[in-house]
Amino acid sequence: MKKLLAVYINDLKLSINGLYFYIEVIMAVTFIIAMLVAIPDTFETSREYYLFLNLDQQNISHSLFEDFQDAIITNSREELELKLNENRNAVGIEITERSNNITLDIVLQGHESQSLRNFILAEIEASIIADSFGFIDIVDEVRLQDQPDSLSDRENILPIYLTINIALMGLFIIAAYIFLDKEEGIVKAYAVSPLGIWSYLASKAFVILTMGIVTSLVVVFSIMQFRVNYLLLTFLVLCFNVFGSALGILITSFYDSMIKAMEALYLVIMVMMIGSITYFVPAFNPIWIRVLPVYPMLFSFRELLLEQGNILYALQNAIIFLVLGSFIFIYASKRFSKSLSV
């Protein structure tokens, strides 16, 4: 253990002298500045509405129109469609009145699914009925958690940053370390030393972990100050980072050139990133996405940042990844010891 510590301290000193350390620091500072200066606390996601009133007389008195006060008025159906073609995020509404018969035509873009169309149709019908005389609300809402809290849009970016920067980037960096040292024959030197290859790999993983913990603490503190349990955050970063590095070592062990390994890692990361779609679209949650490692990582970080988040869920995932990461690490270092070539 003492020897491992010595190797680790040596590696840490080397990396502080190298460019890697400074790049990490600059990146973290840039991210903090961008988050605090350029990213607003809440995002504007308002959608534009275009309205065309196709009426017999120009007396707009129906209560329905009150709902469309924000809409931009157009003068013909053609103009309405033209506007929708210019702005693919917009929605149009045409209201036709013929001898007291009112027709409401919701003009969508065309990519909306049938279930979404049914949903919109039913929602409008429902809101009209809810406004009508003698309506009794017979639906109760039961909340399972008393005071739900949520992150601001800005804070909501943090789990993504933590997952990509801390957990996944370890994959790349560890591969780069290994190929560098392979060139210089260091890996073979370790193999014949009493320390063994595993301590070499572990020391590298610890250096990356140290950088990960320091940068994530600084970044989270600048944005959320004292609202976070930093001990738990450190533990989460530790577990996910160990998993990331172990996976990086395992993938690297299958390749003999750095570029090829990078390619494989790049592909792995891109596939895993698909798991983050669910983070932004919570209604999309097929099982295959929930088993991608990114999914539990993102949500664990989110739960940790929430004031009353589900800490148990985060801890449970952290431990699973730590155990999984350890097994992968043991298997990968066995592969290295056997082949001696990286």
Binding site: N85, L121, I138, V139
Partner: peptide, 28 residues
Amino acid sequence: ALKLLINRHCHSDVEVPINIMISDVGWG
């Protein structure tokens, strides 16, 4: 929205006073 929709179902005997339809401009 969900509460509204369920209310709509439970008041299915109430007639909606206007016609509602959905169309699109063909952007897939």
